[in-house]
């Protein structure tokens, strides 16, 4: 026991020193928030996690908040964390990073807590999906692909880096709907993230894949992947592909991430949180972080974000109930 104790306490000291080194940058002053916690409803290393940790770091570096603690409560596509957040009614020092994936998970997992119960704070970033094939694929443009897909929906396997109700699944289904393919007939194969999916596309196991644009930048640059279309309403810089709108489909889709707070927080808490996030967004550190991560700014706060959430919720519900994945 003695040996183990020593090793463990040594490890604890090292971790503590590292933590100190990380937090040493900011000096205390003014009306900054302290003791804030950001919950990540996914495991470490995932999209919500990186967003939350980057936000925490920017808040501290720009002197807006002190001792921001990020913690993970993964499970059920984010709905375990959502349940906890909704349970923390009135807690003005808790935030949760979330995104489109959580909206879908509420339906697929039949979560009792919904995003409508939360206090919307801000939408931070967004990312369009792309429709991509391997360089060896016979499909050179989106029209060829859509023609074949319409003719034989079941014969063309579509891969996505998320499970049912996740962003890539929604993007594929919305595209299908726009193209006149019945969503129920789509042969959607779900992969464990963009990397797993990438191998299947490069190995020509799938007709095409749908994933976030930032996942495969390098493979696109190296010419291993051909992008047939982007799902946003504008073309994406550095990617030579039309939007789905240009291809004649009335489809516009972007994945997004944002921050919500527990229900029933006081007006002054809500104002303080929104104000802090606004100032974080305006800081040069945040701009640098956006650039480093290849994120697209999509800032929206308070009621605006709330209205957006409501609209997304309805859109997702329609798509999923078409597929029999939503109870209503």
């Amino acid at each position: 026991m003695k040996v183990r104790g020593k090793v463990r306490s040594a490890a604890a000291v090292i971790v503590a020193l590292l933590l100190l080194a990380g937090c040493g940058a900011n000096a205390g002053s003014g009306d900054k928030l302290s003791g804030m916690r950001i919950m990540v409803p996914n495991s470490p290393g995932g999209g919500y996690d990186i967003t939350a940790r980057t936000a925490a770091k920017v808040l501290e570096e720009s002197g807006l908040a002190r001792n921001v603690e990020v913690f993970n409560l993964p499970g059920a596509g984010g709905t375990v964390g959502l349940g906890r957040l909704v349970g923390e009614k009135g807690n003005g020092k808790l935030l949760m990073s979330m995104g489109l994936g959580v909206v879908g998970s509420v339906f697929t997992n039949k979560s009792p807590a919904t995003l409508q119960d939360t206090t919307p704070i801000a939408k931070l970033i967004e990312e369009p999906d792309i429709i991509a094939v391997s360089a060896k694929s016979k499909y050179k443009n989106i029209e060829q692909l859509l023609a074949d897909w319409k003719a034989d929906p079941a014969g063309l396997a579509v891969g996505g880096g998320s499970s049912r109700g996740g962003p890539d699944h929604l993007a594929a289904m919305l595209t299908a709907k726009g193209a006149g393919v019945q969503p129920k007939k789509v042969n959607f194969v779900s992969y464990d993230g963009g990397g797993d999916l990438l191998a299947a596309i490069l190995g020509d196991k799938l007709a095409f894949g749908v994933s976030g644009v930032s996942e495969w930048r390098d493979q696109i640059d190296a010419g291993q992947l051909r992008v047939l279309a982007v799902t946003s309403d504008q073309r994406v810089e550095g990617i030579d592909a039309p939007t789905l709108k240009e291809a004649g489909l009335d489809v516009q889709f972007t994945n997004w991430r944002g921050i919500v707070a527990p229900p029933g927080i006081s007006d002054s808490d809500r104002k303080k949180l929104i104000d802090t996030v606004q100032r974080m967004h305006d800081s040069k550190e945040w701009k640098q972080a956006l650039e480093n991560n290849g994120w697209t700014d999509a800032f929206q706060i308070g009621e605006q974000f709330g209205a957006f959430l409501k609209e997304q919720n309805e859109q997702v519900e329609t798509v999923l109930s078409d597929l029999g994945l939503s109870s209503s």
Partner: peptide, 19 residues
């Protein structure tokens, strides 16, 4: 590996075939 890939991106390095 997935976490390390994310780490590459944090440093502004695109992991992939050109790495």
């Amino acid at each position: 590996a997935a976490v390390m890939l994310a780490a590459f991106q944090q440093y502004g390095i695109q992991p992939g075939p050109l790495l």
